[in-house]
Design a protein around this nucleic acid. Sequence first.
DNA 1: GCCT
DNA 2: CAGTACG
DNA 3: AGGCCGTTACTG
Length: 606
Amino acid sequence: MSDGSSISSHDGHGPSFTFYPAIYVLPTHLSLESLHRVEECLLNRDARLTYDPSEARVFLGNIGQRKRAILELRSRGVCTELEMRSVPGGVHVDGALDLGTETESDGQTNQSTGHLKRARSSDAEVDGSFINSDLIRVVRLGWLEKCVEEKDLVPMDQYIIYQGRRVQHPDDKATKGSEILHRAQQDVSRPHRGTTHRGTTHRPPKLYKQSTSENEDTPPPAPDWVTNHVSYACMRSAPLHPPNERFIDQLVKIRKVRELTLDEIGVRAYSTSIAAIAAYPCEFRRASEVLALPGCDMKIANLFAEFQQSGDGSLVAASALDTDPVLRVLHHFYRIWGVGAKTARDFYYARQWRDLDDIVEHGWNSLSRVQQIGVKYYDELLEGIPRAEVEEIARVVHRHASAVRPGVECIVVGGYRRGKEASGDADLVLSHRDESATHNLVVDVVSSLETEGWITHTLALHLTTSTRDQQTLPLRHDTGNHFDTLDKALVVWQDPSFNDTSPSTPEKKKRNPNPHRRVDIIISPWRTVGCAVLGWSGDTTFERDLRRHAKKSRGWKFDSSGVRERTSGGQVIDLERGGETWQEREKLVMEGLGIGWRPPGERCTR
DNA sequence: GCCT
DNA sequence: CAGTACG
DNA sequence: AGGCCGTTACTG
């Protein structure tokens, strides 16, 4: 092995590390495979592995020098001072030193007595020195190799490179961010110290079989995109329901907390990790598998370890969304259409509101028009639209569009096209092979639908190309020809027809019981319909990475209205010319951008 | 939080 | 200008 | 150390 690790995961039975404190494997100077084998070896012997440096007390690594060891610790935020009493080669005294300090965990000591006997027979240092001391040790990998070779625990002494005690971190001042966020981070950083497993080295029962033979828990071969470090979500296939969906659900909740606490970068980071995990084709069995994915590092691997050990698959930082009283209210406000994280916090902290009634009672007139609509139809707009109903809406829109522009095509995009059972809204792209037919189409379709009673409110109208062009064309010799983005209408929709039978009071019109729905109608000229459909069919991270990739790898600007040169002047790049159908044109765009085609059902980055 |  | 929306 | 989607388009 180039990194000098001779650890094999097929090494038969060996000693048990159950009663060692949390072990952290330093990845430095280790290949990913070696790292995995070392972890595998430890796990097979019931060691308590951690990906959180702050809770580890043994750091195992392919390292030779004390100076290097200190550096490795420091770079992981572990500040120590040298502990002189038992340095390498010194007298072995920690047992005596620490045995007397065991006061807080009698239960654990008693419970493990029987095992301690076994352990003690081969290694006297196991019990006393570690279980209750705050000693931090950096140990050469050779120790583990020796233990494996001897099939027994071997004293660490000769393998200790450095030994220290934790000291207060110099810049440990309070974070300026919200206390909730801070608390959440604290909680995450010590996932094994919860009330459930407090202080004990006892591992929860393994769900998988103890490995004895060929069926060894070697992880499945990594997919290409892992080996090749493909970091753009738009270049991987992520299905609607990936194998690690339950873990992803937890991470999505943490991301939501980051949104609510205005941590945009954290949101971006979690999105990257989530997208990678969503593309992973099998259930993780080891945190080290997580570690191998692009966009996932110790933080995420550690969260997976917590997920795996939690029993019910919950993460403390994720549960905060439901349990923290402040976050609960912020989340509630955030789900109002037209209210983002900033406004939600303003409602809470400045206006001191706590629920929708407070808003209606004390601030109705301070709301924007769309926020009022958002509050009014709060529950209905959050409901989720079944696929059949999305199709129904599309038929109605297509009928009206056809009346106004014969030959128009209506394409359902968004979550529906990715296969979601229920969509947050209905996203429809209208296009026509005759370029002039898409001119003013939004306005015409929306007013037609309004007249027939399908559209109850228009939340936003984005008019760019067509309407404005005509009015301002003479004035527009603009410097930067950003002449195209798509026309679109974001509307509130309600089926106007319902049974008006029964009423004993026939004069009073019964209220329409059909739920209000959010519908987005997007207009695209045929010339760029492939871009429109591509830009409106992927999950957020897929679309972000699409733009990022177009920029970084081609120097192009991609959006749903087309592909352009990024250099001023912005020459249009026509990647879809020659495509006969919108499906063909979308495929040509994906290939032209160099991401390769994949169906919409595989663009689910969450 | 992760990557270059 | 900041804030929100869209995927 | 600096970037992270969009020179988005809209509202107020």
